[in-house]
Simulated scan of single mutants.
Amino acid sequence: MLSRTAENMFWLARYMERAESTARLLTMGQRMAILPGAHHRDEWRSVVRATGADCHFPEGTTVTESDVVSFLMLDLDNPSSIRSCLLKARANAKSARTMLTQDMWEALNDGWRKLDSYDLSEARQQLPSLIDWVKTRVMTFRGAADSGQLRNAGHDFLRVGSALERAQMTLRLLDIKYYVLLPETEVIGGSRDHYQWTSVLHALSGSRAYHHVYGGTYTPWQITDFLMLNRLFPRSVAYCYDQLAFRLNRLAGWHNARAECNDTIEAMVTELGALDSGEIFRIGLHETVQSGLAASNRLGAEIAQAYHFG
């Protein structure tokens, strides 16, 4: 398989996953912003911070919903905006067209310039429906890939890109809650704290799955355990790491050679498997998350090096 094609499949998946993840961040921002005192806590800045783009908004200024919708949904100058991600995903797909099924291509192509027709005022007015549209586009593409694509190296690169991006998103959402949105001491465990934690589950479509595992009780420790360590929930960090290990092992088989990325992901799986939620909080959730983000960034660079991405 050509390195260029492998890179296109890898980044196609990452851009689609990133578009959906950013849409989920906007949903979480809306839910957080309606809480009492949200304006003073600058909740919308935390959403931008989760994308790593906080430098675009000077400290000391209030970040508004308009700022975030413009920057994270519509701004073509922001390479991680939803609009930019969908355009880049389609460009990558076009370059790897022979690796896609017709249904995959149609899922990417259907209404691909939709966001071009929206100005900021219209986007804010229709934000819930636009978020649903983005999530539907990505899930339709994912379903088409799962149901029709050959299980060859191209599919593995697609799944590697998706799992890597998804793991990073789950880590960032946890970091928003515990570090950026850490409530004042007197309200830890209170109704607002509870609402913020359940908002993290909602943003990851994990509320019902969590309920099946833990019933009706919601605590920071259980939610962290679920999103970090549960190997059955497809958006947990542990599940994504397992997928990365499996797919990278298959790619090593396709190419008859292991690479540094194989050793790195095996170490990441082992290290995470040695933790429980109590240990994560003893170490510090923020510190654990930052370590995971650093490891996943290193893994991405090693994958690019192993398969000669440009």
Score class of each variant (00 low, 15 high):
residue 290 Q to D: 13
residue 23 A to K: 09
residue 218 Y to S: 08
residue 114 K to C: 04
residue 95 S to R: 13
residue 45 R to S: 01
residue 105 W to D: 09
residue 16 M to A: 15
residue 163 A to I: 01
residue 206 G to F: 10
residue 258 R to S: 11
residue 146 D to V: 03
residue 75 D to H: 00
residue 266 E to P: 01
residue 236 S to I: 05
residue 204 L to S: 08
residue 125 Q to G: 01
residue 305 Q to Y: 08
residue 104 M to Q: 13
residue 276 D to T: 10
residue 172 R to Y: 03
residue 119 D to V: 02
residue 51 T to H: 02
residue 218 Y to A: 10
residue 135 K to N: 12
residue 194 H to W: 15
residue 184 E to D: 15
residue 183 P to E: 12
residue 181 L to V: 01
residue 35 L to G: 10
residue 165 E to M: 02
residue 98 T to G: 01
residue 241 Y to M: 08
residue 238 A to R: 12
residue 50 A to R: 07
residue 109 N to D: 12
residue 213 V to T: 13
residue 132 D to I: 03
residue 48 V to C: 01
residue 154 G to H: 01
residue 136 T to A: 09
residue 136 T to W: 00
residue 132 D to Y: 02
residue 134 V to T: 15
residue 135 K to F: 00
residue 208 R to W: 07
residue 228 M to C: 11
residue 65 E to L: 14
residue 251 L to D: 10
residue 55 C to P: 00
residue 138 V to M: 08
residue 69 V to T: 14
residue 270 T to V: 04
residue 117 S to F: 11
residue 135 K to S: 08
residue 10 F to Y: 15
residue 230 N to R: 10
residue 197 W to P: 03
residue 310 G to T: 07
residue 25 L to V: 00
residue 186 E to L: 14
residue 97 R to N: 03
residue 234 P to L: 07
residue 269 V to S: 04
residue 247 R to C: 14
residue 296 S to F: 01
residue 174 L to T: 02
residue 58 P to N: 01
residue 17 E to D: 07
residue 208 R to T: 12
residue 187 V to C: 00
residue 116 D to L: 05
residue 106 E to S: 12
residue 305 Q to F: 09
